[in-house]
């Protein structure tokens, strides 16, 4: 029981990080219908900017301030990355052959990985745990269920970010424009919505979310390298599809589920096969629910 509770805590924390990345995937998919393979690498870039900011500020400012600065600077710069990636690699291909933006995105992903590798080295970079300690939720048979401050911080930040994000999407003119472009880009343009600008904004927001996820990943695990983007990206993509690609709550739900599956599988079965478990469950879910858990089931129009 205690052990299961611990896995639940760990899984939720990890799941929230996945969820944040998945939201960016799903937003981009919803609005231009492409798989943004470089999204995972934006997450990695975010983690690296985070480590750079934290290193630069270490000893200069208090830890919480430093972390806040890392989150904000990373989100801002990654927003710029997202904007530039869309302008350079995707916009020229909009409305073209479906596979072209996919390959372009894969190229962008390779480019970003190697850009970080060549500029910052291939070594793993580690930071110490900046928010040590935590609270013990319960004890049972000598096993203490820990909820660390770090986990609390990650969950709190994620929830705040998601709340702000939900507000933007549902309540602001920008969010309305985004949803309109998602429904029908041509019609939205006819009604005076600047689709290019809306799509750019989507990339900026999505990338900023990924960057924050990256910083939290860095804080949670303490170790990053230039390759983390691939795995995280695939997991987040899986989360987005599992939840129903295009559905924002679905992305968060998918992320949480994947976090939980990983945590429980690692806790009760073999760590080695945790990713395989995630992918298998994805395949099984899609077999019975071809549009994911919360995806709109499309009635075939004939």
């Amino acid at each position: 029981m205690a052990y299961a509770l611990q896995q639940l805590v760990n899984g939720l924390t990890l799941g929230m990080i996945y969820g944040l990345i998945a939201v960016g995937y799903t937003m981009v998919y919803g609005i231009i219908g492409m798989i943004n393979f470089a999204h995972g690498d934006v997450f990695m870039i975010g983690a690296f900017i985070g480590i750079i900011v934290i290193t630069a500020l270490s000893g200069i400012t208090a830890v919480p301030l430093g972390l806040l600065a890392a989150l904000i600077i990373s989100a801002a710069l990654c927003g710029l990355y997202g904007f530039s990636i869309e302008r350079v690699a995707y916009r020229p291909l909009r409305g073209s052959f479906r596979l072209a933006p996919l390959i372009s995105a894969i190229g962008m992903s390779i480019l970003l990985e190697n850009y970080v590798q060549t500029s910052q080295g291939a070594l793993e970079r580690a930071i110490p745990n900046l928010i040590p300690g935590g609270i013990t939720l319960m004890r049972q048979d000598g096993f203490a269920v820990q909820l660390t401050w770090m986990q609390i911080a990650i969950m709190a930040v994620t929830l705040v970010v998601l709340a702000v994000f939900t507000y933007i999407v549902t309540k602001t003119p920008l969010g309305r424009a985004m949803r309109a472009v998602e429904q029908d880009a041509k019609m939205a343009a006819l009604l005076g919505i600047d689709t290019n600008r809306t799509i750019s904004t989507t990339f900026i927001i999505g990338s900023a979310l990924a960057a924050m996820a990256g910083v939290m990943f860095l804080l949670y695990y303490g170790v990053i390298d230039f390759y983390i983007g691939f795995n995280a990206g695939i997991k987040a993509f899986t989360a987005a599809v599992l939840g129903g690609i295009g559905s924002l709550p679905g992305a968060v739900l998918g992320g949480l589920l994947i976090g939980l599956i990983e945590a429980f599988w690692s806790g009760y079965a073999t760590v080695a096969y945790k990713d395989a478990a995630v992918y298998s469950i994805l395949a099984i879910v899609l077999m019975f629910m071809p549009s994911g858990l919360l995806g709109r089931h499309e009635v075939e129009k004939v």
Binding site: Y29, I35, I234, F237, T238, V241, I245, T270, A272, Y273, D275, A276, Y279, S280, L282, A283, L286, M287, P290, S291, G292
Partner: peptide, 28 residues
């Protein structure tokens, strides 16, 4: 067999997942 009724990107991610599963199995 089980996944070919999936469309577009759903098929893409499942095929990607199968590729990863096979790699994970031969690794482990």
């Amino acid at each position: 067999f089980p996944v070919l009724r999936l469309r577009g990107d759903y098929l893409a991610i499942v095929t990607l997942a199968f590729g990863e599963i096979i790699r994970l199995v031969i690794t482990n």
